[in-house]
Write a protein that binds this DNA or RNA. Sequence first.
DNA 1: ATGAAAGCGCTAACAT
DNA 2: ATGTTAGCGCTTTCAT
Lengths: 352, 352
Amino acid sequence: MGSGLKRQGRVGIRDVAKAAGVSPTTVSHALSGKGRISKRTRNRVIEKAEKLGYKPNRSAQQLVTGNSGLIALYAGNSSTPTGRLTSALPDYPFIMNIAMSASVEAIEQGLSMALSSQTSEASGLLQMGVDGAVIVDPEVKDPVNEEFFEAGLPVVTVGRVLGVPEEMNEHWVDVDHNKVTIEVLEHLKKRGAKRVAVISAPVGPSYVNDSLEGYKAWCESTGQEPIFHTLEGRDYEQETRRVTKVLLDEKDRPDAIFCHLQPVSVEVLRAVIAEGLSVPDEIMVATMSDDNKVNNLDGSGMPDLTGCNLHPEQVAREAVRMLASLIAGEEPANRHVYVPAEITARESTNRK
Amino acid sequence: MGSGLKRQGRVGIRDVAKAAGVSPTTVSHALSGKGRISKRTRNRVIEKAEKLGYKPNRSAQQLVTGNSGLIALYAGNSSTPTGRLTSALPDYPFIMNIAMSASVEAIEQGLSMALSSQTSEASGLLQMGVDGAVIVDPEVKDPVNEEFFEAGLPVVTVGRVLGVPEEMNEHWVDVDHNKVTIEVLEHLKKRGAKRVAVISAPVGPSYVNDSLEGYKAWCESTGQEPIFHTLEGRDYEQETRRVTKVLLDEKDRPDAIFCHLQPVSVEVLRAVIAEGLSVPDEIMVATMSDDNKVNNLDGSGMPDLTGCNLHPEQVAREAVRMLASLIAGEEPANRHVYVPAEITARESTNRK
DNA sequence: ATGAAAGCGCTAACAT
DNA sequence: ATGTTAGCGCTTTCAT
């Protein structure tokens, strides 16, 4: 026997049944909304259940339904270029946030969650009988997507899979990067920016496309000539310094730079200041990926960085909730969810 | 019904029993090592089980044993000073590594794992019926420790709880920071260091004590005067620059600097180079916390940083394994486990 | 609209 | 040393 000690006095479905004066079956139905039950009894049952603090025993539910109650959170290493100092930064905090929140939401949904960051682990989880998966920043070429798809297991992605038939990526949660990009651009404009340049993350994830489209549309509508560089991701720091130098040396120099990745913004900040230019007066800098634990730079001699709150916690929760629905055999309320994001203005764009 | 589709043709204990010509009970006993069974039949059963690819149904096991099969990984925010750029760095990769590995090991142990980083979440998990917890870098004052202790639930810590009676921290996994510190110091000495200074992480976690003790012992045995600064953790970058300046301005300047935290080392590297001194020829720099994804600085114009492989994956696995034993009601093989660590020499200490 | 009964896959008393 | 029996707490036919 384990340390379980047979959870003393835990209230079960029978206790609720007795208290409500009905059968266990009725309680089950009332709580799951499956059978046909009169409103009155249902409410009575629910009330009693809450009053007694009834929590269904997940093991029993899983045993009878045949589910394992386990889901995988797969955050592939795709977007984690290895071997460089700064390259680790954009991903860890974001994935940590997602993982923590997803884990909590999973618990609340009666599921538990296994993390995996490698293809082999993910396959292992499949073998172990997970009920479904959340895949963060999915890649088309990643075999994990296909494996789950072929196994017929429900998958919810965070970010869309670009370039595949819709039925292979039916369910996703995403941030409206297009919209938040435009919000940032408008903010910069309002603060007096005349020419806004963009330093983009390497192509691949859908958010890069989305943001760049937003930028192009905004340029079109405002008549500004688009100026953007897409990083290759081999060496963020070096590339960023190079690109920044190029931007600053242009005859018609941009007076605001918007970067997708937070560490890139920091490097831009460094480079701009090193060049003897003032932030935000001569150049404003903003980032899309933001981490409030990280962007507050005071004490480092650099201005706090304007960023976007992409609400990773909410993204994670929505994804897990959607997956839970799918596992329960329900059609989720929405198959596509956009989580709103908004700018967090700080010192680096506070031009007066 | 869920998508579980009643796991078709899944081999159960009865199938194994039939194949081995014994009863289900015997199979159960043979596989768990509980009852008294002859060696011969046990082996036969095990063989058949493997051949048929038998995997026990966790839900059924949990239902009957009364365990939830869920453990908590609690990595408190203690060691994560907030609000500063670099302060996020030391923790995220380490905790990510721990979390991922722990998660995988949990699965292998038939458990699943919920992440939590906040007291409230951890309490929530307790209410939800977790079977035990792994607590990373525990703090004495953290209520989470006590809550679990009082609930009588098994806890394994990663790092020791300092200053509490032994029975409140019976089970832990730790890295031998004392030993690895001395290994680094010896390495530096061998490379020609005459005076080694240490910049220590803020006090609290046991590893800080352990490493500093190692340093003091080493100083005593080599006759070097100890030179160390302990960061307060308010602003790593600024503090580090200040401390480094002080060290470099001493008349009898140290020619090697060992830091606990990787981002601190990077800042030291910057400061030393900015001061016009060469690494490793004039000053060697090394770090204790290391991340191979992060310490490889080439391309940034700075030498790769010598660090220590603290084997976070192994630490996590040991901790989960120990916890699994405790949950199963067994006395674990060891109540204290030291995971070996070793230096990873790189360019920043490669003085010829 | 509600309930009785069967059983998910496993473990653990209690025989033998 | 091995088998028999009785559930763990829940869902789900199938009656009523």
